[in-house]
Design a binder for these strands. Sequence first.
DNA 1: CCGGTAAGTGGACTATAGTCCAGATGTGCC
DNA 2: GGCACATCTGGACTATAGTCCACTTACCGG
Lengths: 192, 192
Amino acid sequence: MELLRTPPPKERSDAARNRAAILDAAARLFAEHDVESVSMDQVAEAAGVGKGTLFRRFGDKSGLAVALLDARERALQEAILSGPPLLGPGAPEAERLLAFADAYLDYALEHLPLVRMSETASVGARYRIGAYRFWHRHITILLPGSPDADYTAHALLAQVDAEHLSAIVPELGEERIRAGIRRLWSDAADPR
Amino acid sequence: MELLRTPPPKERSDAARNRAAILDAAARLFAEHDVESVSMDQVAEAAGVGKGTLFRRFGDKSGLAVALLDARERALQEAILSGPPLLGPGAPEAERLLAFADAYLDYALEHLPLVRMSETASVGARYRIGAYRFWHRHITILLPGSPDADYTAHALLAQVDAEHLSAIVPELGEERIRAGIRRLWSDAADPR
DNA sequence: CCGGTAAGTGGACTATAGTCCAGATGTGCC
DNA sequence: GGCACATCTGGACTATAGTCCACTTACCGG
């Protein structure tokens, strides 16, 4: 989505080293302890850098989460843009929509605490990050018959909000949620 | 919903005075300044009480918001439980559901920043407060034909999450959102 | 190799939510 | 009235996110 107009001004070698050190340390800490309970100070400490460096690189806690999820997220976006059908282009809209629901849930449920951090840390973070716009646009395109695809896409995405999923998974379990999402999304794809 | 089993142990008069002072001060501050930007210290200061008192009374920031919204929320619950039809008992389920959607949106959109604070301040706050359970149960009852009314009710409520509404109102405007919600909720009430 | 400079660094600083508890105070009972 | 005691109070304290800026360092052209 976001094309880089000016070629990235080249990152200094010490900066690159520190970015890697931070991502390593953060991945380790988040794997070992509860994501919620790891502080930015701990991450900085474990990475051997100052707090200022950590925040300059990643902006805030949700930015750090986004960076850690980057690879998985890109892979999903890649598969959507140019992968084989069902998920990628070529299949009928309704089927592509359901394939997306499944793939997105695979991703979100596997990394739920991190995804939640990426959406929650600062107010409105979820709706500002580029990924949300990407998913929204993708869904919009897959709802050609909808009276208001724009609104509908937001409504479908609300069902996979990490905070929302975290709250209902313990209550309903993943399978029931997946089934419910499939049902409601395919109804939305096929308006009467 | 939550019945009080033990009669409330009677609140001391100084405590009652302070609760009122806090609610007054908070209502005034939130009316004058952006809800986000008012700190609990400011509220305590303006109410002329210590911080400890403020937190003992209301638990946290979201608890304070809940208390401020209490009257409006109770009125809506009252109307649902024993008010005249469409909103209250008596009308066909699908119509009651739409009446609820409208009434809830009246409430939420009118007080959006406060409602958002009541749902956001602490992690998962929204799903823990009694009101959420009430709305969920109410919707469940109005979806007798649904394959999984429990899940569906959560999905419909996700559309009126204050954080979600705050993000899409500037983009789509209230009317389009109300229309979208009416459309999707009535589809859910009437499964094929 | 060297000097200029933009980019990067780290830790002190601020703001804020929320905790804790020693001491003050209202209430019920005699 | 006054005693016993549960409740309440306020502010000092902690934890944490995020800002700021004087200093350092990698890089580039000469």
